[in-house]
Design a protein around this nucleic acid. Structure first.
Lengths: 334, 334
DNA sequence: CTGAAAGCGCTTACAG
DNA sequence: CTGAAAGCGCTTACAG
């Protein structure tokens, strides 16, 4: 591929002049035209890696998320990507599969590739690489989850109030045997949803014995497994809350397979709302996160930090309970 | 951030030696240790952009898809990302929103960033930039869709047989008023699905008048709009086929909103299978693409081409009709 | 407005 | 095994 020198020679100018034509310096109209014509003839494309080396900025951002297959992250990714593109940044995508090892590898690569900033939803609450990144001065934004001890703004939805509200709703319906399919408690979101569920139940005089807390990993298969286990209990729950959309999918598939009727024989609700929840019979009661607003906030934040305009503060929005038809009074009393 | 010179000075060796330690040249055990210790102390991370400039390879691939929110592309992206990572490549993600302009901008950026290869599902059947990329010698593989005239392998599922089979199935059920919610006919997949649907109907003596061909853009909202239009027809169809998953979602929402009962009052089928189709009542009859195998094929291919081992041939797999419960005899004869 | 030159941080023949 | 030196393709003070 043609280089800036080829173009300079072809146009009869210096490489500095060619650089100015593409970089936006002052160049006379005639010269500019000759340079453009020459670069057209040669099919010249400025080499962004040479430029990045020189100006010490890659115009590239890293986005590290646990799972592209999760519609929540997919929607956030879309928003981030959109805002990044608009501001002239590219996005390197990293899918960690909730695996801290993979996450560590990705962070190393992003560091070596000298990305200008990183948006990350960390797999676990601790990460040595994140501390290194902080030291290296690379702007970081946490998405949905964060790790303590790292000075970086967080963009997330707080689900505690909505989960408490859900528990109240279930209690009001008459449920006393509540179960949760929890995410990993060591993640912020996993821990928060579990704790507010448990606390909400306790406050209402409802005990949730350990056997009715089933731990999953936020992925679909673990949701199915958890539901299978809950259904086999000597005293199965009358209402189950899945702590994210993917585990809800697995749990619903399992209910289907087992022929358990919702909400007649089992009430069900999910954290995260997904478009197809409304199409199910009954439509699924869920806790919706303001995804679009989250994505936009994250997307705006990173370029701001990169360009050093300011240190933005965290953005914490509220998740909302959306009552639909998947919960009813226990004991077939629907 | 520390550079290779800092490490060299700290370890009392030349930069060449430091480079060899990280690049895998022959270095004595003692020297290696001193270099590693020094780089540890300084928190050194090799600068991949300098390396890329020097070796003329970025170890970065571009992935350009029409829509991250489409579970099909999301699954393919995941497979590509996985295989890329395993082979030491990063992935720059580009979301075109089916917009040829956005696609063109992305391709320019990828070209300037000197990615080692590009996997793309083009928005339209023609693209001047793709020709330039070919000239530039950047390896390309087409995913799902391709543009004629560009010499690059394609990885896709051929849906023609399955669509024909679906039409036969519907005809066998007694349907004579067939409708299709088609994708843009100028895309390979849009055109192919529409044509095989029309041809299958014709061959069975069923005419599909123009008013029963509703064009969408492969996105959800267009599916809803199309279904709304079909329902308002003086002679509405008795069976509707949506040409992809997102338009199917929109169409199903519209059927729901209009209170049309499936399959009693309307038979419905979709191209693309999605996990939640099985959870609907009735479960949706669909044409499934072998996504995992497609993703794996694409993922394997690109690094192979980049490393110049060979020019792989195209991979065309077959889509499969999965009959479930959303189609029945017309006229409430379910 | 334009050009010569230094330098961004690496890798890699070449020599020893 | 180790080092000195050239060069990858740019940008940007500095001088004219």
């Amino acid at each position: 591929m043609a280089t800036i020198r080829d173009v300079a020679r072809e146009a009869g100018v210096s490489v500095a002049t060619v650089s100015r034509v593409f970089g936006g310096g002052g160049v006379s109209a005639g010269t500019r035209e000759r340079v453009l014509a020459a670069s057209e003839r040669l099919g010249y494309r400025p080499n962004a890696v040479a430029r990045a080396l020189r100006v010490e900025a890659t115009r590239t951002l890293g986005l590290v998320i646990p799972n592209v297959m999760n519609p929540f992250f997919t929607a956030v990714a879309r928003a981030v990507e959109d805002a990044a593109r608009e501001r002239g940044y590219s996005l390197i995508l990293g899918n960690t599969d909730e695996d801290p090892e993979k996450e560590a590898r990705y962070l190393e690569v992003l560091l070596e590739k000298r990305v200008d900033g990183i948006a990350i939803s960390p797999a676990r609450a601790a990460s040595p690489h994140l501390a290194e990144i902080e030291r290296a001065g690379v702007p970081v934004v946490f998405l949905d989850r964060y790790v303590a001890g790292v000075e970086a703004p967080v963009v997330r939805a707080d689900g505690r109030r909505a989960v408490d509200e859900l528990v109240g709703y279930l209690a009001g319906l008459g449920h006393r045997r509540l179960a949760i399919i929890s995410g990993p408690p060591e993640t912020v979101t996993g821990g928060e949803r579990l704790e507010s569920f448990l606390a909400g139940a306790r406050r209402r005089g409802i005990g949730v014995p350990e056997e009715r807390v089933a731990y999953g990993d936020f992925r679909r298969e673990s949701g199915a497994r958890a539901m299978r286990r809950l259904l086999r209990l000597a005293e199965p729950p009358t209402a189950v809350f899945a702590a994210n959309n993917l585990m809800a999918l697995g749990a619903l598939e399992e209910l289907d397979r087992a022929g358990v009727r919702v909400p007649k024989e089992m009430s069900f609700a999910s954290f995260d709302d997904v478009s197809w929840f409304r199409l199910l019979r009954p439509p699924v009661t869920a806790i919706a996160q303001p995804i679009r607003r989250l994505g936009e906030a994250a997307a705006r934040m990173l370029p701001e930090m990169v360009e050093g305009r300011e240190r933005p503060g965290s953005v914490v929005l509220e998740a909302e309970l959306v009552v639909r038809g998947s919960c009813a009074a226990p004991g077939g009393g629907g």
